[in-house]
């Protein structure tokens, strides 16, 4: 005995392209936990450290460096973490002390924005070119398939266009003469 008023619990609704709504729902439901807030984690020294260079060893990341100058910087980070300061405030302190050269990451401003944007611009350009090529190749493939299906009885479109152009130019020549 069917206890449900419908044949299936959710009525089958077809999208224009034929996609089943239930599949779509099944895909979306597992994503709901993403709406939950992310688990809060306390800021650690290493998270701050990796954004800084050692002031005493030019070019050496603080996370790798073990010199006494680096130890002083680490102690300062610990002190500020104990005061409850966030990463941005601590980094701002070091920038104020030593300038922007102390950061391992270029600040997102001015010419530095090029560094952040260029990879994605390159990706978009690459994908666009690849997309165009694939479309062109697929079009060539379908033309070839059509040609095969029709047994290649008719001349290709390019040839027809060429014939029309030759005829037109001959007409023009006759008119000119």
């Amino acid at each position: 005995m069917n206890i449900f008023p419908f044949r299936s619990p959710i009525p089958r609704i077809k999208m224009a392209s034929g996609t089943d709504w239930r599949v779509l729902l099944a895909c979306l439901v597992p994503l709901l936990p993403l709406l939950l807030p992310p688990s809060a984690q306390a800021l650690t020294r290493s998270e701050v450290e990796k954004h800084l260079l050692c002031y005493a060893c030019p070019g050496e990341p603080l996370s790798i460096d073990r010199c006494s100058g680096g130890d002083r910087m680490r102690a300062e980070i610990d002190r500020r973490l104990a005061l409850g300061q966030d990463k941005e405030t601590i980094l701002a302190f070091f920038v104020q002390q030593f300038g922007e050269d102390i950061l391992t990451t270029p600040p997102k401003k001015g010419f530095n924005l090029v560094a952040y944007a260029a990879p994605f611009v390159a990706l978009v350009i690459g994908l666009a070119i690849a997309g165009l090529l694939v479309r062109r190749w697929a079009a060539a493939g379908s033309r070839r398939a059509e040609g095969k299906e029709s047994g290649d009885a008719s001349p290709p479109a390019d040839y027809q266009r060429l014939q029309e152009r030759v005829a037109k130019e001959l007409d023009q020549l006759e008119e000119d003469s």
Partner: peptide, 18 residues
């Protein structure tokens, strides 16, 4: 950056991760 702005920056781990 040094050629354009005259300033040699450091580009480290956080940049590449990002």
């Amino acid at each position: 950056s040094e050629m354009v702005t005259g300033k040699k920056l450091t580009v480290g781990e956080p940049f590449f991760n990002q």
